[in-house]
Simulated scan of single mutants.
Amino acid sequence: MFRRSVLTLGILAVFGTAAHAQSGYPNKPIRLLVPFAAGGTTDLIARTVAEPLGRELGQPVVVENKGGGGGSIGAAETARSTPDGYNLGMATVSTTATNPAINPKIPYNVATDFTPIINVAATPNVIAAYTKLPFHDYKGMLEAVKKEPGKYAYASPGNGSITHLMMEMFKLSTRTDMVHVPYRGSGPALTDAVAGQVPLIFDNLPSALPFIKEKRLTALVVAAPQRVPALPDVPTFKEVGLESVNRMAYYGLVGPKGMPRDIVDKINAATRKVLQDPAIRKRIEETGSIIMADTPEAFAKQMREELAVYKDVVVKQKLTMD
Rank of each mutant, 00 (worst) to 15 (best):
G85D: 00
R261Y: 04
V120I: 15
Y152F: 15
K105C: 03
T191W: 00
A18E: 14
H136V: 11
M259D: 02
G69W: 01
V228F: 01
Y183Q: 04
M178D: 04
V126T: 12
K316W: 08
E285Y: 05
D137M: 01
K257L: 00
R216C: 05
V179L: 07
K146N: 14
M1H: 09
P100N: 00
L53I: 07
L242N: 11
N103Q: 09
H180V: 07
G16V: 12
T112P: 03
V245H: 02
Q22G: 10
R3M: 13
T236S: 04
D113F: 04
P52G: 11
D312P: 11
V6P: 08
T41V: 10
P225D: 06
A46I: 08
Q197L: 11
G54D: 06
N125Y: 05
F135W: 12
S244G: 06
R80N: 15
G71E: 08
P26A: 09
F237V: 07
P60H: 07
E64A: 11
F202S: 15
V240G: 07
R227E: 11
H136S: 15
P35C: 10
E56V: 10
Y138P: 08
T112A: 15
A293G: 06
P149H: 15
R227D: 08
M90N: 01
P260L: 03
E148Q: 15
T115C: 11
P260C: 07
A128H: 04
T42D: 12
